[in-house]
Computed example of a mutant assay.
Amino acid sequence: MKKWMLFFGLVFAIVLGGCADTDDDMEETGHYSDPGIETAGNVSEDTDKVEVTMYNQEKEAVGSAIIRPVYRGVKVTLEASDLEPGTHGFHIHENGVCEAPDFKSAGGHFNPTDAKHGFDHPEGPHAGDLPNIEVDQEGNVFADAAAEMVTLDKGEENSLLKEGGTTLVIHSDADDYESQPSGDAGKRVACGVISD
């Protein structure tokens, strides 16, 4: 009987020791580590966020966006002012260049999978399609947008930090989520370069 008690006591001590190491990992890194489990959703070691300054057609700064990795894709937090009130299309574009006043240098929507535009299109959306934003009567907007099909991890086909970068663009009109190639969202009224 004493041998069994000694055996269970030893097993219990080993288990407690393992738990202590795990708690130490949690305190030091903010998450439990297990070399046998892929820790999907952790912040990239290279890039934990990207800050983007948004400029209008007169080359004046009108706001900023912060892009952070999340469990699936990235979260884009936009804060801007001096915009026309109403609903506006908001997209990630394929080139990291914002030449005013038309911002055509930003190219088309970021679309590494060659999909159709729009959340309502059966063959869409583009990886760079984002939900419309609502600008209040004072010309201000604060919005969070999820972009599940992109990443900040360099070297990936769908990375926003690809060679040459990408851009965030605000359009003059609402995106109808279906028309090709860009949702009939009108002119490009603000632009910001996404780069590391």
Rank of each mutant, 00 (worst) to 15 (best):
T53R: 01
T53F: 02
T53D: 03
M54C: 08
M54R: 03
M54T: 06
M54N: 01
M54E: 06
Y55K: 09
Y55L: 08
Y55N: 03
Y55D: 00
Y55R: 09
N56V: 04
Q57I: 10
E58A: 06
K59P: 02
K59C: 09
K59I: 04
K59Q: 03
E60N: 12
E60P: 03
E60V: 06
E60K: 15
A61H: 05
A61S: 13
A61D: 11
A61Q: 11
V62R: 05
V62H: 08
V62W: 04
V62S: 01
V62G: 03
G63S: 04
S64A: 10
S64D: 13
S64L: 05
S64W: 06
S64H: 11
S64G: 14
A65T: 06
A65H: 05
A65L: 08
A65S: 08
I66P: 02
I66T: 08
I67Q: 12
I67G: 05
I67E: 08
I67L: 10
I67M: 07
R68H: 06
R68W: 10
R68D: 06
R68V: 15
P69I: 12
V70Y: 06
V70N: 04
V70R: 11
V70T: 10
V70A: 08
Y71L: 10
Y71N: 13
Y71V: 12
Y71W: 07
Y71I: 11
Y71K: 09
Y71A: 14
Y71C: 03
R72W: 15
R72H: 13
G73V: 09
G73S: 06
G73D: 14
G73R: 05
V74W: 15
V74Y: 10
V74E: 07
V74N: 09
V74I: 09
V74M: 14
K75G: 04
K75P: 06
K75H: 02
K75D: 10
V76G: 00
V76C: 03
V76Y: 04
V76N: 00
V76W: 03
T77C: 08
T77Q: 03
T77A: 05
T77R: 04
T77S: 13
L78K: 12
L78I: 13
L78C: 00
L78M: 10
L78Y: 03
E79A: 14
E79L: 10
E79Y: 07
E79Q: 13
A80H: 05
A80Q: 06
A80T: 01
A80W: 00
A80G: 10
S81F: 11
S81D: 15
S81K: 15
S81Y: 07
D82A: 15
D82C: 02
L83W: 13
L83N: 13
L83T: 05
E84Q: 14
E84H: 04
E84C: 06
P85W: 12
P85F: 02
P85H: 10
P85L: 11
G86A: 04
G86S: 01
G86M: 07
G86I: 02
T87I: 15
T87V: 14
H88D: 01
H88E: 13
H88G: 00
H88P: 01
G89V: 02
G89N: 00
F90L: 15
F90E: 00
F90A: 00
F90H: 01
H91Q: 14
H91K: 12
H91L: 14
H91T: 15
H91F: 12
H91Y: 09
I92L: 07
I92C: 09
I92Q: 05
I92G: 07
